[in-house]
Simulated scan of single mutants.
Amino acid sequence: MKHNQNRRIFRTFYAATASLMLLSGFTSLAAEPGGNSFRDNIAVAAQDKADAASQENKNANAAAEWNLSDIAGGIQGEALESTKAAAEEAREAYLLKIEEEKKAAEEAARIAAEQAAAEAAAAAQAQAAEEDRRLLAALIFCEAGNQPYEGQVAVGAVVMNRVNSGVYPNTIREVVYQSGQFTPAMTGWLDSVLASGGYTDSAMQAAADALAGSDPVEGCLYFSTGGWGTQIGDHYFH
Rank of each mutant, 00 (worst) to 15 (best):
V193H: 00
G198D: 05
I172V: 15
S165D: 09
G180S: 09
E143Y: 08
L96M: 13
E218P: 00
G180D: 08
I172T: 06
Y199W: 13
G180K: 00
N164S: 12
G145D: 01
A144E: 07
V175R: 02
I172H: 04
C142A: 12
A108L: 07
T183P: 01
G213L: 07
P184E: 02
A124Q: 12
E218Q: 10
R173V: 12
Y149P: 01
N146Y: 02
R162L: 06
A123K: 14
Y94K: 14
Q125M: 09
M160G: 02
L194I: 04
Y149I: 08
T171S: 15
A93L: 10
A154Q: 03
S214N: 08
A137I: 11
Y222M: 01
C142V: 08
A206Y: 13
T183M: 03
A129R: 15
E218K: 05
Y199A: 06
G188V: 14
L135S: 07
E131L: 10
E119S: 11
L96P: 09
A121K: 15
D209I: 09
A137L: 12
R173I: 04
L221S: 02
E130Q: 15
A116G: 08
S196R: 08
T200M: 06
V176R: 02
L96K: 15
P148C: 07
Q147D: 15
G156R: 01
Y94H: 12
S179L: 07
E100V: 13
A120T: 13
S165I: 02
A144Y: 04
S214F: 00
V153A: 08
A128K: 15
D209F: 04
A93H: 03
